[in-house]
Nucleic acid binder design. Structure first.
Lengths: 211, 211
DNA sequence: ATCTGTGAAGCACTTCACAGCG
DNA sequence: CGCTGTGAAGTGCTTCACAGAT
């Protein structure tokens, strides 16, 4: 069955809320309550989960631990994913140093930069390599995911290189609309676009987005 | 008329592409060509624009400069927006130092942190103030937008403070599902959620998202 | 009595397809 | 003849509402 990608994008949200509940010792939760935490309707949660199976108990709700495990399995979070980060400027360093990836099974395995002053230095005991050698390095030691944190004018080139090395998921921090061949996923992280989508509603006094 | 928020979110994309075309000296562009750059269908671009007026010339296309000006006006980008950033750790510093905000009319006007070692130091000649004094400072010197780059466990508190100071748009980098009252917009920037939404498709060999 | 799982209905966004203008 | 602007058709996601399980 073909599952809507909006559904897939909500699952990590559910998983995170469940992880919090679990670490608070919570054993059971209803779609109602989970929805309250996340600003999602209970019906949507139930419908989303129903694409993958029947995980709840009628009259009771969901076992937190069990549902969390199921979601992790569905999303493929029960294994390690190797990441290469390209661009080790201020932003790249902030990303590489972020502790939030590790507990989720993401491991930054390679880092690249084109600035000679940067190459050879380390972030979190990870040696920064020359972007010129990216394809050589990744051919011998492949990664699953690429994170692009280079300036706009070199981003597409970097993305093409990653794709040639078999990377099939890219997180792009550069402010460009990048092109990738079919079968390769790319998501954009772009604070300027996010802000510009909000100023529209700030303009006109009372207006606010429907969703 | 009530304009779909997906439409509003695409306008900044169009504006950026037009700005690039404009700086390349391009004077006219068709919805077809603009769509090629952005991976958006021409019909969608035309429909989106039609919510706001008739900006094109049949048989010719759109005047790049004129359409760009219109979009800037629609989105409210023809003025300065004052931003407060809360959290001046690695991430906060990277955001505050990002040069991409300024040319778009976003000005980081205040920065806060709760770490005594940080308070008083500067980023880009902006003095970092104590988060404890956030409400006092912003009451006297209001901002339009808040950027939250603090750890998960203090994010909701910070967001509540910003809302009390009249901030009606928040960009949240903290990994929590935050709550805001109606009339306040919040957008999340969360690399972990973005990655987790991609691993689902990496798992099963050939699968790839429909969009 | 409560809460899930789910067809069916409803709603919102996208795409079509073509009249009309330059 | 090319390309916009736009009703209408199509598609896909969300919400409803209730049977059924505990």
């Amino acid at each position: 069955m073909e599952i809507p990608s909006v559904v897939i994008d909500r699952l990590p949200l559910y998983a995170r809320a469940l992880a919090t509940l679990d670490s608070n010792g919570r054993e059971v939760v209803s779609s109602q309550e989970l929805g309250n935490h996340l600003n999602v309707t209970p019906a949507q949660i139930r419908k989303d989960l129903s694409y993958f199976g029947r995980f709840g108990k009628q009259g009771r709700g969901y076992n937190v631990r069990k549902l969390l495990d199921e979601l992790r399995r569905i999303l493929g979070l029960n294994r390690q994913w190797r990441i290469a980060i390209v661009g080790a400027g201020r932003l790249g360093k902030a990303i590489a140093g972020y502790e939030g990836f590790t507990p989720q099974g993401f491991r930054i395995a390679e880092a690249f930069d084109s600035d000679p002053a940067m190459i050879g230095s380390t972030i979190n005991s990870l040696v920064i390599k020359n972007t010129e050698h990216l394809e050589t390095v990744l051919s011998e030691n492949p990664v699953d995911i690429g994170i692009v944190a280079v300036p706009a004018d070199s981003a597409q080139k970097v993305i093409d290189s990653l794709v040639r090395c078999g990377v099939r998921a890219i997180l792009n921090y550069a402010p460009i609309a990048a092109h990738v061949p079919p079968g390769v996923q790319i998501k954009r992280i772009d604070p300027v676009l996010a802000l510009q989508g909000m100023t529209y509603y700030l303009k006109s006094e009372a207006a606010s987005p429907r969703r």
